[in-house]
Design a protein around this nucleic acid. Sequence first.
DNA 1: CGTCCAAGTCAACAAGTGTTGACCTAGGGA
DNA 2: TCCCTAGGTCAACACTTGTTGACTTGGACG
Lengths: 181, 181
Amino acid sequence: MARRSDATREAILNAARERFASDGYERATIRAIAADAGIDPAMVMRYYGNKEKLFAAAAEFDLRLPDLSEVPPGEIGATLARHVITRWEHDETLMALLRAAVTNEVAAERMRTIFAAQLGPQVLKINPSRAPARAGMIATQVLGFVLCRYVVKLPPVVDLEPDEVVHWLGPTLQRYLTEPV
Amino acid sequence: MARRSDATREAILNAARERFASDGYERATIRAIAADAGIDPAMVMRYYGNKEKLFAAAAEFDLRLPDLSEVPPGEIGATLARHVITRWEHDETLMALLRAAVTNEVAAERMRTIFAAQLGPQVLKINPSRAPARAGMIATQVLGFVLCRYVVKLPPVVDLEPDEVVHWLGPTLQRYLTEPV
DNA sequence: CGTCCAAGTCAACAAGTGTTGACCTAGGGA
DNA sequence: TCCCTAGGTCAACACTTGTTGACTTGGACG
């Protein structure tokens, strides 16, 4: 059954995601998160124990990669590129994780786990040869794009239209999947 | 003439670079930097005014890109890839800037300026068509690689040998420079 | 010698942090 | 009716931060 406190829990989580996404781990304060959620800071502690556990709860997420083995082999790169831009554009959780991963070891570990668990197996199915390296290189290009577009906000990268993003990113990802050796 | 304080200034700057590189802007404290440099925190303030100015002084740097117009056109991507890995592997300034740019607007602005001033013109000389977008995409791949290898430390990316890095990165950068439209 | 000034030390400040524990309050069950 | 408890508030704690200003040193120079 739904307890009365569930709404508060959810409000805290949403506020936490926003703050962690825009400020990073250290600059996002419990007090600010509580204020955004319209409750007392002590409630945050009551429900999540401490800041690190709150972050862990707020940064729980899923890349939601499509099943790439069902995509025509020649279109995997483009599919992946399109997925990146649609998925990242509207979910603050991923931004929160990226921003935090740069200065917080727990967040970095989670980032590693997510890529290993969600991207790794897919790459292995498509091309078992050197699969970890391939997945790693895909991660570098995807995270680098996200970093430049949403975090550092390099103007020429911010200005790209979604179709242009696919045009640039698609073949790169495709090559990381299929390039021999 | 060299003042007696110049050694101290330099010691502060070195300590600051190390701390900013490993901890990021907010977690690097003036006290820790001063301790590393073996002096009093007040000295840091005396010489650099405040934390932001100290960071600005510590994060002053140069990509030291070679003149790409003198490189055989087919080898520019590989040259750039090799440069990235040799340059980044031993200079903490660049790490400091990257780590700080994620949570600090001043650092992000500096990152933007550096890429616009040092990479932009080179790309323009090599291929004037859509040059800003090309430079932007190169930045995404380079920064993404650095992020994954040195900051997030994704295992398969950390494990790559320098030659493998060139093998993966080279053609990607080459394509961003030359791909039509 | 004494003077002077750059170089360096020390203790404290105001503000902000995560975190805690004592307290209040509304509302349902006995 | 009273009581009990989940949900929520409040004020304070211990600590850390950037920053400041008054003080001490040590050596060059008259």
